[in-house]
Amino acid sequence: MVRRLALRLAGALATAWLIASTCFLLSRALGAGAPQLLNDEQTGAFDHYTAAETQFRQRLGLQQPLFYFRLLPWRWHGTPNQYHSWLTEALHGRLGASFRDGAAVETSLRTALRVTLPLTGSALLLTAGLALPLALGMARRPQWYRRFVPVAYLLDSLPLFVVGMLLLTLLASPDFWPLFPAYGLGTEGAEGIFWGNWLNTAYYLALPVAALVLVSVPALALPLTEALRAQQRQAYVATARAKGASARRVAWHHLLPNALPVFITRLSDLVPGVVAGSVVIEVVFALPGMGRLLAEAAAARDLPVLIGGVLLIALSRLLAWLVADTINALIDPRLA
C-alpha cells in the first residue's frame, strides 16, 4: 500500500513537472507570448524604441536560447538556456521573478492564495456541507427530489457572473437591500486576510462565497442523490429496514458509506478550483486572488507567474486525485 502510494506520488510529481515544462516551452516559443515593454498606448522616444525593447528583453534573460537544443532543424544550444535556469531554480524551490515588478513568484502566489483559499475553501466546505444533507433528503423524500431537481438544473446552467452580478445588485446596491459590502475585503492596511479578524472577513466574503456555493451545489448534490437512490434499491437496505433500523439510521449507516466514493470523487474534482480561484468572482467582487493574478499575468505576458500558477494548480489537482483514491480505497477496499 505504502509502496503503491509512493509510486503514485512520484508519478503525480512527474506529471506536474511535464505539464509545467510543456507550458513553459510553448508559451516562450510562440511570438505572441513574448512580453513587450511599450504597449500600444505608449509611443516611446523617437529612435529609441528598438533599443528600449532590446534592453528590456536582455534584462529578462529572453535573449538566451530557450532549450538545450532546437528542432526543425536540429541545433545544439547547451546549458545556458532559459529552461535550464528555470529548472535549476525550481529544484531549489524558487519559481523565478515576475516580469512586471521583479517580485518572487512564490511571494505573489502566496499573497494571492491568502485571499483565494478562504474564499474558495469556505465555498467548498459549505458546498459539501449543504450537498450532503440535501442529497440524503432528496434520496429519502421523492417529493423533495421532484422539486429540487429542476432548481438544481437551473442553478447548474447559470453562468457564474450572472449569479455574482445578481447577488451584487440585490444585496449590495443602494436600490435594493444594501446588506453586504460591494467589493474588497475591508482589511485596512492588513496583508491578505487576518484570521483574528475572521468575522469581518466572513462579512466581506459572504456574497462571493454565496455565489460560488449556489453554482456548485448541484454539481455535487445531483450525482450523490443518484448514487443514494440507486443504493436504496439494493436488497441490503430492505433487510436493514426489516430488522427495524430507523430511516435515519439506514441513511447514515448503510446508504451513505456506500455512496460516499461518488461524493469524494466529485469533491476532489473541485479541489483544484480552490487553488485556482475564480476569475469571474474575483473580478466582480474586486478580490485580489489567484484567478485574477493568473488572468492578469496572462494578459501582461508575465510568464514566470503564469507558469508558477499552472504548476501549483496541476500539483493540487493530481494530489487531490491521489488523496481521493486513497480515501476511497480505505472506505471501500474493493476500489483499491
Partner: peptide, 17 residues
C-alpha cells in the same frame, strides 16, 4: 489530467493570444 490541470479560463486566455 493534462487538459484538466490547466484551468480552462487560463487556457482559453492563452489560446486567445
Amino acid at each position: 489530467a493534462f487538459t484538466a490541470s490547466v484551468p480552462r479560463l487560463v487556457l482559453a486566455l492563452l489560446l486567445a493570444a
